[in-house]
Each structure stands twice: as C-alpha cells, then as structure tokens.
C-alpha cells in the first residue's frame, strides 16, 4: 500500500498530461466543428505546457530566482536549491505564441464562415463539391 502511494505520487503528473493530451487529440480528430477542433488544439498545447513545467520541478527546491541582497555579490549557488529554469523559459514563449496562433486560427475560421456560412466540416465539404460539379473526388 505504501509503495503504491509512492508510485502514484511520483508519476501522477504524466498521467494528468496524458489525459489532457488525449482529450485534445480526440477533439481534433473526431469533432466536425472547426471551432471545437481549435479548442482541442489548445487543450493539446496546454498538456504540453503542463508536461514541460512538471518536469522542471525538483524536490525541496525553490523557484529559479537566486536569493540576493544589495552588495551581496558572490555567494555559492547550488543547482539543487533551485528548480530547473529551462522548461519555464521554453513554455513562457510557447504560451504567448499559442495565443497568437489561436488568433490566426480563429481568423481563418471566421473567413471560412464568411465564405461557406457554416463551420461544420462535412457541410463545408458538401458546398465545395457543389461548387465544382465536374470534379468527382473520392474524399468526403
């Protein structure tokens, strides 16, 4: 029982990430509405961000800002006392970029809605087929 609890406590972050990742991927594959697909993409991105941030933790370490005071220039800094800053840096930029790409994705969705009057993928495909009667494509 003791070992099971330890096992869960040392791995549960990956499971949370996997659940979020799978939800996002399912929404991207199975949902027909384009906005739902975009939301799925965002959940997927959140899973990746959570994964990176969770692997940056160290047991018993504090946040990656070195303790300092005025005039206190050179004291020894031990890597074990501070959590890993690298995943935080990578995710910091990734979060802002994900917001920007979300904006582009929504702009594309709005353009599609203006063109076809719907955001459902199968209806859009039907309208594309209607507008090109000569082409007998097998897709859709």
């Amino acid at each position: 029982m003791e070992s099971l609890a330890t096992f869960i406590l040392t791995k549960y972050n990956y499971w949370a990430v996997i659940i979020l990742l799978v939800i996002g991927l399912y929404a991207m594959i199975a949902k027909k509405n384009l906005v739902k697909k975009i939301i799925g993409m965002n959940i997927f991105q959140t899973a990746i961000i959570l994964f990176y941030v969770s692997i940056g933790t160290k047991r018993g370490a504090t946040l990656p800002i070195i303790e300092h005071a005025y005039g206190d220039s050179a004291h020894a800094v031990h890597a074990a006392d501070y959590i890993n800053p690298l995943p935080h840096v990578l995710m910091l930029t990734a979060i802002v970029v994900s917001v920007a790409t979300l904006g582009v994705a929504l702009a594309l969705a709005m353009k599609i809605h203006a063109q076809y009057g719907t955001l459902e993928e199968d209806e859009i495909q039907e309208k594309i087929m209607e507008s090109e009667p000569g082409s007998t494509s097998t897709s859709g």
Binding site: T10, T57, K58, A61, V77, P87
Partner: peptide
C-alpha cells in the same frame, strides 16, 4: 516527479543556475 537527477535537470540547467549571477 521532483527528481533532481532527471535528464532535464542535469545537462545544461545546472550551468545556468550556478553561473547566471
């Protein structure tokens, strides 16, 4: 979770922590 000797925490990140200041 929280393993200080994990691959992510061993290669380049100790350099950053110890030499940034």
């Amino acid at each position: 979770l929280g393993d200080a000797s994990s691959p992510a925490a061993t290669h380049v990140s100790p350099y950053y922590i110890e030499h940034t200041m």
